[in-house]
């Protein structure tokens, strides 16, 4: 076998071997767990610091502007910011730009309020605290005190209570969402008269204190498409609403110019961005553990090393085999 044939074989290797290799390097780190450190970047710190300065009198929007296809990247971002907001008692509005985003919002809320999740938040549904609303108790601290004085005990392991309609509201999806954003700059209730559970949102404390996007302090859009730019166009440019992006890795480079121009307060790019936010949550004592994104970064690193090795080997074979002097390769290439 001549040397040239070896190079040609390398370049024509059955791609299924590469898939198998990627599969192995993606599974092994999960089972072994290297725990590689992650440093944080100013783009993610920008979002974290901004949210961290907000409090119970403020409010944020989390846009679940993605479908299950990019759930692996976008979901940890939304979950991390939601936990941060719940910890700081910042009211959260949840919307969806795409139809399947509604299910993503439900899944994120279920995860954060699931007793199996470390440091979960115990959810109180809107109808369950109706008596307290009728008694005029809507302030979070007073509400929590009254709720607990009536014999409701926070479960061991839970980080706190979250009251539907007070601490969060799931508004859901509407078509032509860019026009919905525009409409919400005037009134949120005109766009969403009822929430996901068909509760009229007009009677919710969260809405009474934040009637339109003008009374909201940040909108984080977690997106797998260009939907995120609608928040800049229709909310940032129209009323100056601060915007943060949580976008997939594929899209991340497209939106760095918006950070430099000051149109967004920060950006989480791909799984790495979500992992950075999880690290910031842990370092600042907001959560006890990091989440799924951080655990996935070991795999990310291993897969990247494998891909870099493949690129180097491919280039060595290409040049050493003299293929850069030929117009086309033999075989299937």
């Amino acid at each position: 076998m001549s040397a040239v044939n070896i190079w040609e074989k390398m370049l024509n290797v059955d791609r299924r071997w590469i898939f198998l290799g990627i599969g192995i390097v993606s599974i092994v780190p999960f089972l072994i767990g290297f725990g590689m450190p992650i440093t944080t970047t100013i783009e993610v710190e920008g979002i974290f610091d901004y949210v961290d300065e907000l409090g119970p009198d403020d409010a944020i929007f989390i846009g679940f502007d993605f479908a299950p296809g990019t759930q692996a990247e976008n979901m940890p971002m939304a979950v991390a910011v939601m936990r941060h907001a719940f910890h700081n008692r910042i009211p959260v509005f949840m919307t969806a730009y795409v139809p399947l985003g509604k299910g993503m919002a439900v899944a994120a809320l279920d995860y954060v309020t699931n007793p199996k999740t470390d440091g979960y938040y115990e959810r109180v549904l809107f109808e369950d605290w109706a008596d307290y609303r009728e008694a005029g108790i809507t302030n979070k601290e007073e509400l929590t005190a009254a709720w607990e004085s009536d014999g409701n005990v926070l479960s061991e392991g839970a980080a706190g209570w979250v009251f539907e309609g007070r601490d969060y509201v799931l508004l859901g999806y509407l078509p032509l969402f860019h026009l919905v954003i525009l409409g919400m700059t005037g009134s949120i209730e005109t766009q969403f008269p009822v929430d996901y559970h068909n509760n009229p949102i007009g009677g919710m404390p969260i809405l009474m204190e934040h009637k339109s996007l003008r009374e909201v302090d940040l909108a984080l859009t977690t997106s797998g498409s260009a939907a995120c730019t609608a928040w800049i166009t229709y909310a940032r440019e129209k009323i100056g609403l601060p915007i943060a992006f949580g976008v997939t890795g594929v899209m991340a480079t497209d939106y760095f110019p918006y950070i430099q121009s000051g149109q967004i307060v920060g950006q989480m790019g791909g799984l790495r961005g979500a992992a950075e936010y999880e690290v910031l949550l842990k370092e600042n004592g907001i959560t006890r553990t990091t989440g799924k994104a951080f655990r996935g970064m070991d795999v990310q690193s291993a897969a990247h090393i494998f891909i870099i090795l493949l690129i180097i080997m491919g280039n060595i074979a290409f040049f050493a085999g003299g293929f850069h002097k030929k117009t086309r390769l033999k075989g299937r290439r």
Binding site: I22, S26, I27, F30, L31, G69, T70, Q71, A72, E73, T248, G249, V250, M251, A252, T253, D254, G269, G270, L271, R272, K292, R295, G296, V299, Q300, A303, H304, I307
Partner: peptide, 29 residues
């Protein structure tokens, strides 16, 4: 830079599915 981020994005999607298979389904992680 875009290619680098794209690789990261595609691997992230695979990671999400592996977490589902090894965690939710097989309970290995």
């Amino acid at each position: 830079a875009t290619f680098g981020f794209t690789v990261m994005g595609r691997i992230s999607l695979l990671i999400g599915r592996i977490q589902y298979l090894l965690g939710d389904w097989l309970h290995l992680i």
